[in-house]
Design a binder for these strands. Structure first.
Lengths: 154, 154
DNA sequence: ATAATATTGTTGTAAATGCAACATATTTTT
DNA sequence: AAAAATATGTTGCATTTACAACAATATTAT
């Protein structure tokens, strides 16, 4: 106990990074196993679009925490698969590409949401059923604070 | 409130992913600002090596949750910068490459640890000083459970 | 009015990452 | 003893990602 918590590997930041890395791996494995025809990121984007109908690309980029370039590419893929439609509209007098989820996309999303929820709840239940909510809430306030601190020019 | 929590974007998994993504961005910005001559990942690896003297590459890969290929590449860079030394040894009668941190590496690590700790504590303090420990502990047990669930063949 | 700045999306490029395949060597199975 | 499986590290490749540069348009400043 010579050095108390001076290591990065003892910090909450590191713990967060490691846990997230595992979580991502688990989700990838789940998607492969269930033979889901979307990547994790396309799925997250689709879910975000479904609850933000008519959002434009840049605003979506801010929500999914990617840059505009990659957001565009993810949307290309979702559009090509027929899960979203894109259309030109205006926002503050500027031309933007807005989007919405399609019938097919909504059906696919609901299906995946059910499958994924069922499977992933198995994980959280095993952990600490009572505290999951609390941790999620704490993570959220942590994230809100991070959003104030991090420079995010998209 | 038609659908209660059926969205991925309402799940703790998504919250974790988003928070981690922001955290990574913040750390990258910090490293750029402080002109630290290591990537975040090299730093995490170096810190891990420093508390696991004589570890072999594969075991390190398991700790930092990367595959063997990238672990090797990270170590190439750390070795080239003179922060670690690598040497051949045996483990279970097999030849392996073990490693340790150098004097220079230790000095650099201590310096970064101090800088980073100071800066990052600013973030956690603003959030919820009392609960940080609790969240970190919950994350840890969550991670431990994930480690049981995720297939990780390295 | 003209210039400077800001918003939005796309393209190009370099770096990071994971996965599969390979090469060696050792252990286990038959 | 031979064959199959395992452990370890490296190389090659395809995917993902971020960042910078660009194009087009609209707003703001001079």
């Amino acid at each position: 106990m010579k050095e108390c918590k001076l290591h990065y590997t003892d910090s909450i930041h590191y713990e967060l990074e490691q846990t997230s890395r595992l979580m991502k791996k688990l989700t990838n494995q789940l998607f492969a196993k269930l033979e889901i025809g979307l990547t994790m990121d396309e799925y997250a984007a689709l879910d975000t679009v479904s609850v933000n109908a008519g959002i434009c690309q840049r605003d979506l980029a801010k929500l999914i925490l990617r840059d505009r370039a990659n957001t565009g590419r993810i949307l290309d893929s979702l559009e090509q698969k027929g899960f979203i439609t894109r259309f030109i509209d205006t926002k503050n007098n500027r031309l933007v590409r807005k989007m919405g989820i399609t019938e097919i996309g909504l059906k696919e999303l609901d299906m995946i949401n059910k499958k994924v929820k069922e499977y992933l709840e198995g994980v959280t239940k095993k952990v600490n059923p009572a505290d999951v909510e609390k941790v999620q809430e704490a993570l959220r306030s942590f994230r809100i604070e991070l959003e104030k601190t991090v420079e995010f020019n998209i």
